[in-house]
């Protein structure tokens, strides 16, 4: 007799667990309006704010006089694990002091190789490069991913101490 009892008990307890599961999904179905977590991405572009620390791409900020803080010291190039930063900084004789000094010519950044590990930012002694919060960097040609971070005609901010 207990075998038959177990048989029916297994049916009813099984059905009960099924209904409990359906209650969970049913709750979300009924409250779909409240519980939906999807973000309407391209539509919410205007209001979408990334966190301040979000690491999107390496940029070099320039002020209004087209001055940046990069001294061409190559610290970031050494810190980079993937070789995504190349510094071209020939030594130029300073006309005032007569000493040879590195001057940044091109700060080349290969976004295609970058893992956004933040080590270059940490290594920079003058805070010349920072992480930007933008994230839409897809392009049709991979050569476009190689950027020169210092703008043409820009120069070192004289207030920056080396």
């Amino acid at each position: 007799m207990s075998a038959i009892g177990n048989y029916f008990r297994s049916i009813f307890s099984g059905l009960k667990t099924l209904f409990q599961g359906m209650a969970v999904t049913g709750y979300y179905f009924r409250n779909a309006r409240k519980e939906i977590i999807t973000q309407q991405y391209p539509d919410n572009k205007d209001t979408l704010r990334m966190y301040d620390r979000f690491r999107g791409i390496v940029v070099m900020p320039h002020d209004e006089n087209n001055l940046h803080a990069c001294t061409g010291c190559s610290a970031c190039e050494i810190a980079c694990p993937n070789g995504s930063i190349e510094i071209i900084a020939p030594r130029v004789v300073d006309p005032e002091t007569g000493k040879k000094k590195k001057v940044i010519n091109q700060h080349i950044y290969h976004y295609s190789m970058c893992t956004l590990c933040n080590l270059c930012i940490l290594s920079c002694p003058t805070e010349a490069i920072v992480m930007d919060q933008t994230f839409e960097h897809a392009v049709y040609d991979r050569s476009l991913l190689t950027q020169i971070l210092n703008k043409p005609g820009s120069s070192l901010n004289p207030n920056v101490k080396e």
């Binding site: 307890s13 099984g14 059905l15 667990t17 099924l18 409990q20 599961g21 209650a23 969970v24 999904t25």
Partner: peptide, 10 residues
């Protein structure tokens, strides 16, 4: 409730 207790899952 959704999985661990479900008879099919067990």
């Amino acid at each position: 409730t959704l999985l661990s207790g479900n008879v099919i899952f067990l």
